[in-house]
Amino acid sequence: MLSLPMAFFIIFRYIPMGYIIIAFKKYSIIKSPLEMEWAGNHGFEYFIKAFSNRDFLYAVRNTLGLNLLDLVIGFPAPIILALLLNELAFKRFKRFTQTIVYMPHFLSWVIISGLALQLFAPSTGLVNVMLNKMGFESIPFLNDSGHWVVTYILLGIWQSVGWNTIIYLAAIAGINPELYEASAVDGASRLRNIWHITLPGLRPTIIVLLVISLGHILSSDFDRPYALSNTLVTDVSNVISIFVYNYGIRGLQFSLSTAVGLFQSVVCIIFLFGANALAKKSGERGIW
């Protein structure tokens, strides 16, 4: 049963790592990576070219900014939702609500962007049409950089919060119920139970997921920013994945895009090791 997953990771994850060398060589479609000529500046020509590119620097800034906002605003959201669902007394309503909130996870960002356009378009969107009828001005959800960032973050939370909540609900289910029974005997309120029992029980799970999230601080999905982006907000929507697409696939600069991808991976690994070390210093196990 393990042969197929192992074959998948070996073929599509480990073997392609050998092509990282393209970042240090002049790419040629008719030569293998070992036969390609080394790039200038001791092989670091494309790294220098990337950091000299203003679009790349903007992409790094946008990627860090959006990921930090996702982390600060989006990371606590599933924890809060899991706590709220755990306190629901009606199990059927709890299951129904949980099903509804994690269903957006299965929607592609192409569909979500279409829904966002129908809801938040400046003149024809349902939200702005209702605001105009009530006497308010239209809000440029998708046409203004500041409003676009807020819309981007909130749509990301809406899409992923239910799915991530499942992890925290599973962790809550593993907390010893005798702790709640003892607190009930002592007359503790629900808020006291959450603060002194549920959150400490969730702490190991929160630390592990936080370490993993910090390990992706410079990585970026392609479909989410690309589907929601437009020419009016490119100053905040162009992230590293879109930069790699424009310069690597459309611009056929494969060595440059490989160098950018390698830089991105190295930074993510540094953040991952740093976050894991901090987790261990705080008394948690970390991820290894």
Score class of each variant (00 low, 15 high):
Val72Pro: 03
Glu178Gln: 15
Ile194Trp: 08
Leu107Pro: 05
Phe8Val: 11
Arg95Gln: 14
Tyr58Asn: 10
Tyr226Met: 09
Ile269Ala: 15
Asn41Thr: 08
Asn164His: 13
Ala188Val: 13
Ala89Thr: 15
Leu179Asn: 13
Thr198Tyr: 05
Ser113Thr: 01
Phe106Ser: 14
Phe47Met: 07
Trp288Gly: 12
Pro204Leu: 03
Ile240Leu: 06
Ala182Asp: 14
Leu179Arg: 15
Leu252Ile: 10
Pro76Trp: 00
Phe141Lys: 10
Gly274Gln: 08
Asp70Ala: 00
Ile79Thr: 02
Asp70Lys: 07
Ala50Asn: 03
Asn67Glu: 09
Leu214Cys: 14
Met36Thr: 04
Asp235Lys: 09
Ala39Pro: 01
Leu88Glu: 08
Leu262Thr: 07
Asn143Tyr: 10
Gly18Asp: 02
Ala39Glu: 03
Ser241Ala: 13
Leu155Ala: 06
Val161Ala: 11
Leu84Ile: 15
Gly135Arg: 06
Phe243Ala: 07
Ser255Ala: 12
Ile212Trp: 04
Leu84Gly: 09
Asp221Trp: 01
Asp223Ile: 02
Phe47Tyr: 14
His42Phe: 13
Ser3Gln: 10
Lys49Asp: 09
Leu4Trp: 13
Ala279Cys: 03
Ile10His: 05
Asn62Cys: 07
Arg190Pro: 14
Ile207Ala: 13
Gly40Tyr: 03
Phe273Glu: 09
Arg250Pro: 00
Pro225Phe: 01
Leu71His: 08
Ala173Val: 12
Leu2Gly: 15
Leu69Lys: 05
Ser138Pro: 11
Val236His: 01
Ile172Ala: 14
Ala277Met: 14
Ala227Gly: 01
Phe254Asp: 02
Arg92Met: 11
Ala23Gly: 10
Ser160Thr: 08
Phe254Ala: 06
Pro33Cys: 08
Ile194Glu: 08
Ile207Gln: 13
Asn164Ile: 01
Ile79Gln: 02
Tyr168Ser: 06
Leu66Met: 13
Pro5Ser: 04
Phe56Tyr: 14
Gln118Val: 12
Glu37Trp: 01
Phe106Gln: 09
Leu4Ser: 11
Ala23Trp: 10
Asn67Thr: 10
Val72Ala: 09
Phe243Glu: 01
Ser229Gln: 05
Pro5Ile: 05
Ser113Ala: 15
Gly274Leu: 11
Ile22His: 12
Phe8Asp: 04
Ile153Trp: 06
Asp235His: 06
Gln98Val: 10
Glu137Phe: 10
Arg285Pro: 00
Asn67Trp: 03
Phe222Asp: 00
Arg224Thr: 02
Phe44Trp: 12
Ile11Cys: 12
Arg61Val: 00
Phe243Val: 02
Ile15Pro: 04
Asn86Gly: 15
Ile73Lys: 01
Gln118Cys: 09
Thr258Trp: 10
Thr63Glu: 01
Ala116Val: 12
Asn62Trp: 02
Thr97Ser: 12
Ser189His: 12
Ala121Cys: 09
Thr63Asn: 01
Leu142Ala: 03
Phe9Arg: 04
Val211Trp: 08
Asn62Ser: 08
Ala77Glu: 03
Val239Ala: 05
Ile194His: 07
Thr124Ile: 15
Ala171His: 12
Arg95Tyr: 13
Tyr168Ile: 12
Ile111Met: 05
Leu69Pro: 02
Ile80Asn: 04
Leu209Trp: 00
Ser219Gln: 08
Leu115Cys: 13
Ile249Val: 11
Tyr247Thr: 04
